[in-house]
Every structure is written in structure tokens, then in C-alpha cells.
């Protein structure tokens, strides 16, 4: 039994249908636990006051924003090389989730930034690269909807995912140069993970686990919808004939 067995849509539907309830329930459990633990039962931090509680939503969503794109990249690569339709549809299904996560990460960061930095928005390298990532998500989704032929859309969006990955990474480091090059000594560092104490670390881990499970559950659900929609179109085309 190899992983490529799931490239068969029928087998994927059967298997994902069985898995989906487990992922959904555990995602809900972990998110509720992590957020309640974080929101109600963790102390304030000296430097950040109660805003430290935003870490439990900001960090998981930001991680997913990036990793959803990585997953789309891998799925697109699999489609280009092995031409498994489920893979292409999974990439399509992941894009809206990644886009929403990017928006949430940016918004929670902005809400946090207002009292902490005195501004909603700064052209900090991390903030800027998330904005760029969001635009890549928008372009990717727009290209999917613009092309009617399904296989062609899968092909072209895969090329975009490849090119987009290269340039998203390139922009991330180019932005570093630009900010330090023009505004010397801007020191709005977001490296909170590195000095997080255990009281915050454990609920954060639970929340991250919950959001990852939520991503998987939504991904399975949306991929199933895409597979069904394709089947619907095929049947309708047959009836119309």
C-alpha cells in the first residue's frame, strides 16, 4: 500500500470521509482548549501586558499562512510530475484557507501593533512579506477561476505556484535589504517565540496543534467538494449531450 493509492479519487473520497470527523473533532477540541487556556489561565507578560494573549491566535495563523503555500507548492509539483487530479484539487482547496490565515495573521498583528508599536502598520520585513504572500494567494485563486478547462487551469496554476514560491522567498529577503538599507536600525522584532516562557509555550503548542488539525480538516472537506464538483460537471456534460 503506497501513498499514491489516494491519487484514486474514489479511494480518496472513501478514506477522507472516514478521517474527516476525527480531524474535525480533535481540531475543535484542541483549539477550544488552547484558546481558553491561553485566554483565561495565563498571566500577563511584563513587557506586553495582557496583549501577550494574542500570541495564541497570531502565531498559529501565521505559521499556517506560510505552510499552506508550501503545501500548495508540493501538491502542484506532484500534479506536474505525476498528474494526480486529487493533488491538483488539494492545492486549489488549500488556497482560500491560506489566504484567510494570512489575513488573520496580518489583522491580529496590526491590532497588537497599535498599542505596542504605536502604529497599526509598519513596513517591517515580516509584515511586508505577509502582504506579498497575500497577493500571491489572490493571484493564484484568480487564475484558477479565470480558466475554464480544468486540467489547463491545474497546469497553469501549478506553474504560478512554482514561480510564486521562488519570488515569495526572494521578496522575503529583498525586503530585509530594503528596510535596513533605508531605515537604519529599525528594531521592530517579532521574534517572540525565542523568549517565550513555559507558561505561554504549552497553551501555544496546543493552539498550534489545533489550528494545524483545523487546516487538515478544512483541506479534506474542500478537496472533497472540489472532487464532487468535478464529477457534477462531468455528469452534466454527459446529460447535455
Amino acid at each position: 500500500m503506497s501513498i499514491w493509492e489516494f491519487a484514486n479519487p474514489v479511494r480518496f473520497m472513501r478514506f477522507s470521509g472516514k478521517l474527516l470527523p476525527y480531524f474535525s473533532v480533535s481540531a475543535a477540541l484542541l483549539i477550544v482548549t488552547g484558546l481558553i487556556w491561553g485566554f483565561f489561565f495565563t498571566p500577563e507578560a511584563d513587557q506586553f501586558g495582557s496583549t501577550v494573549k494574542i500570541i495564541y491566535i497570531h502565531v498559529p495563523t501565521a505559521m499556517l499562512a506560510i505552510n499552506a503555500w508550501v503545501m500548495m507548492f508540493v501538491a502542484s509539483l506532484i500534479w506536474l510530475i505525476r498528474r494526480h487530479h486529487v493533488s491538483a484539487l488539494a492545492a486549489k482547496a488549500a488556497a482560500p484557507i491560506g489566504a484567510v490565515m494570512t489575513v488573520v495573521a496580518i489583522l491580529t498583528g496590526a491590532i497588537w501593533g497599535q498599542p505596542m508599536w504605536g502604529t497599526y502598520w509598519a513596513w517591517d520585513p515580516r509584515l511586508t512579506s505577509f502582504l506579498v504572500l497575500f497577493i500571491f494567494y489572490l493571484g493564484y485563486m484568480a487564475l484558477w477561476t479565470a480558466i475554464e478547462e480544468e486540467d489547463k487551469a491545474a497546469d497553469l496554476t501549478s506553474v504560478l505556484a512554482m514561480v510564486g514560491t521562488v519570488f515569495a522567498v526572494l521578496s522575503r529577503y529583498a525586503v530585509n535589504f530594503w528596510n535596513q538599507g533605508l531605515h537604519q536600525g529599525a528594531s521592530l522584532s517579532l521574534d517572540k517565540e525565542e523568549h517565550v516562557a513555559d507558561v505561554y509555550y504549552l497553551p501555544l503548542l496546543v493552539a498550534i496543534g489545533g489550528f494545524v488539525l483545523l487546516f487538515i480538516a478544512l483541506l479534506l472537506l474542500r478537496t472533497r467538494t472540489e472532487i464532487r464538483n468535478r464529477r457534477i460537471r462531468a455528469l452534466q456534460a454527459r446529460e447535455a449531450r
Partner: peptide, 13 residues
């Protein structure tokens, strides 16, 4: 600040 951030996240997801 904290409440707003949580509301945004819960509404969006």
C-alpha cells in the same frame, strides 16, 4: 486590543 484580535480570528475562521 485582546478582545478585538480574538473576535477577528473567530469570525474569520
Amino acid at each position: 486590543t485582546v478582545i478585538n484580535a480574538y473576535i477577528v480570528t473567530i469570525v474569520a475562521t
